[in-house]
Each structure stands twice: as structure tokens, then as C-alpha cells.
Design a protein around this nucleic acid. Structure first.
Lengths: 207, 207
DNA sequence: TTAAAAATCACCCTGTGGGGTGATTCCCCC
DNA sequence: GGGGGAATCACCCCACAGGGTGATTTTTAA
């Protein structure tokens, strides 16, 4: 697998550097170091990483928690908070952003490694899989879906009707029906609602 | 809110005791300390806690990771791994169980507190809310669902048809249709599939 | 090059789903 | 004791979903 790319947002250069060195020591790639919130947002926009490490006590326009809120709302990647201070009020604020981890300073390579691995894994398990992944799905099916059928099921998963599917994919509604029929057989269901439930369950299940 | 009850599974008495003291110092309740896997399973069965702290390197029939698997499959509660050793192979095994956290020894009160708070919160956000909760749902709706409508929507959420609903609730299919019509209006949807999508989104959203 | 699989489309047919309207009973609250 | 929401039910209507059958073309693999 290719390198996991990590963005560090930390205003204390010494900590940023040592964190960066640790990450590279355990085979991650540091996509960038942002020393304030503007740089962080710019990096997120121009070169989104696979994961972000956010200093909670960032001294800039936005602090780490506010950046976390932006990531949660506007980006599709997990983030982990770094902090030296873990007072109750901070944690209260932080957890509302639903971070995938929280590391208390001082930390070492082991702390980083486990937090990142768990964060990436749980993010893939609980957050991202709301979007369907064809390979993952097909592994769980006795007979796999074709690419076209997968296109269709993605929209069914979003609640679309046959007519909407026909327009969106520039095909006849009859063709849509054929695809739907086939994928219902493969999923072993008899209605869209059942299909949604089946996908929910398959998605939640073991990879 | 009442005390969060935590089960400690740790075969090293000194660590177990100090962990227990830390937890009580930060206002959690220690439901029990289990010194081996048999005790842990017995406690889970007879007096399930709100969260479990599992020593990965447990020296007994089952190690911490195996207990984690059992909790994931058979119980509905989050767990956090404790370990002094964070080798890659251990982390690989551990993350497959989808723990809600991972703490590397030695740790202090702050580490414990943040890991537990984040774990409980994320668990409630990502895992448990697959089950519908009427109060939570109604808070997000402009006009709330009645109890009966909620009974119905729970089954729609499981992919049931109107006929199945009628039988299951001992009411006429016409009554089912009336309820369905009302709750579709309240959810602002026009089909079961759309309702499923809406519920998925509402459930995933901020509480 | 040829066979198999995937994608496209058509037609028919039935059942259910979803919308509209209206009515009754029960119970709670003012 | 009367108003109002909740729960129950009926009937009509029609669009759409879902199943069956069959056919053509394009792509892929053998």
C-alpha cells in the first residue's frame, strides 16, 4: 500500500519537527506542516492528506477544535487532536467534533502509531463506508455486481427512483429495471427498502 | 448523569489498582476488576459495564484482543485496549476488533480521561445509533413523530412492507398506510427508500 | 475468432405503495 | 363538556416497482 499522508497542524516548531520525525520514522509521509489555521486550511484545500494531526491549543485565528469542525463538515478525512492540556472543558468541546483520536502530550512513536492506525481503521469502518465501495461489497456477495450494476445501486442507496436513474445515466428506464432486477437477485432482496437494509448490514459487517 | 461504570481487565494487580484509583479520581465508577478472561466474561455477563478497559497482554485463556472480539460480537459496549507493547502485529490484530481506543502504557489520568470520553462519545455516534431512538430523532424533526408512528418507522427502517406491518402490529393495512403517510410528511420524503436515506442522515448528524 | 458476459432496450402484467378524502373512537387536557 | 390530537379504519385512484420473457449489441476473455 502507498504511504499514508499526514498533515501536521502545530504552532510550536519544536513539537512539529519532532512529530514529523516520528511519523517518518514509522513509515508515514508528512504531507505538510501548518503553523497556523490559515496554512492548515490552505493545505486541506490544495493537497488533502489522509489524516490530520491537530494541535488543540493552536494560537492563531482558529484553534485546533475549530479546524476539526471544518474538517468534519467539509472534508472526508479523519483527524486526531494533540494537546498538552486535557481539562474537562476542552475535552467537552473536542468530542463534539467527533475526532477519531486524542493524544495527550508528551507522546512517543508508539502512541502516535497506535492512535493513527486505530483512527484510520475506525474511520474506514464507521464513517467512510457510508459511501459504498465496490470491491468491499463484492467480497461479501456470492455473485459479484458488475460495474454498471454498482453505479445503479449507489443511487438506489441514495433513495433515487427508476426514473431518476434513467435520466441520470442516460439510459432507458427499461434498462434500469433490468439492472435493478439483476442486482436484487444478487443481493437476495425484493425491494429497494430491503436493499438499503442489506447494504447497511453488509457495510457494517466485517471487511 | 449517573456514573459511568467501567470494567478493568488486567492481570497485573499493581496496574489494575492504580488504574482503578485513577478512574475513581476522575469520577468514574469501577464496576469490577477482572484478573483473567474467565472473570472478565463472567462480569460482562452478570454485570455489564458501560465501557471495558482491556489489557492486551493478558496471561490467561483468552488475551485482551480475544475478549475484545467477544465484546464486539456479543455485547453492546465500547472497549479500550491497554498495552505496554505496541508492535505492529499487535496493532494489526487489535484494530480488527474495532476498539474505540488504544492507550499505551504508561498512562496517566489525563490519557485515561480523554480516551474514555472520546470512546463513549464516538461509540454513541457511530455504533449504537444504528438503532433508532425516538427522543433523539424527534429533536431533529420540525414536527415530532407519535409513539405509534415511531413503532411503524422502526419496521420500515428494517425493510418491512405495509402488509408485514399490518400483521405484526395487529392493525389493518389501511391504518398502516395512514401512519406511513403521516410520517412521510413529517420526514419530508415520498418513498420508503427516501425515508431510509433520511433516517441514515439524521442518525449520523449531530445529536 | 468465437464464446461468454455485460449492457442495452421493449413489452406485458400484477401488486403494492403512496396520495386524497373522510369517518369513528378514545383519551387527555383545559 | 368540549376541543384536539392520536389511533383506528375504509375506499378510491394511479403511478411505479418488480417479475417474466426475449432480443440486440458491445465488450471482454479465452
Amino acid at each position: 500500500m502507498s504511504h499514508i499522508r499526514i498533515l501536521i497542524v502545530e504552532d510550536e516548531p519544536l513539537i512539529a519537527m519532532s512529530t514529523s520525525a516520528m511519523l517518518e520514522g514509522i513509515d508515514y509521509e508528512v504531507s505538510a506542516i501548518a503553523y497556523d489555521s490559515d496554512e492548515a486550511l490552505e493545505q486541506l484545500r490544495s493537497d488533502p492528506p489522509d489524516l490530520a494531526l491537530l494541535d488543540v491549543n493552536l494560537k492563531s485565528k482558529l484553534d485546533g477544535i475549530q479546524i476539526g469542525e471544518i474538517i468534519r463538515d467539509q472534508y472526508d478525512l479523519p483527524f486526531i487532536f494533540l494537546t498538552s492540556y486535557a481539562g474537562e472543558s476542552i475535552v467537552e468541546r473536542a468530542k463534539l467534533t467527533r475526532p477519531m483520536g486524542y493524544i495527550v502530550k508528551p507522546f512517543d512513536e508508539k502512541d502516535l502509531f497506535t492512535a493513527i492506525e486505530i483512527a484510520l481503521y475506525n474511520y474506514a469502518q464507521f464513517v467512510h463506508p457510508l459511501k459504498l465501495d465496490m470491491e468491499r461489497l463484492n467480497k461479501k456477495l456470492p455473485s459479484p455486481l458488475t460495474p454498471r450494476e454498482f453505479d445503479i445501486i449507489k443511487d438506489i442507496y441514495e433513495g433515487k427512483t427508476n426514473q431518476q436513474l434513467a435520466k441520470r445515466h442516460f439510459i432507458s428506464i427499461n434498462t434500469v429495471k433490468t439492472h435493478v432486477k439483476h442486482l436484487f437477485e444478487k443481493l437476495d432482496v425484493q425491494s429497494r427498502a430491503e436493499a438499503l437494509v442489506m447494504l447497511r448490514n453488509l457495510n457494517q459487517a466485517q471487511p
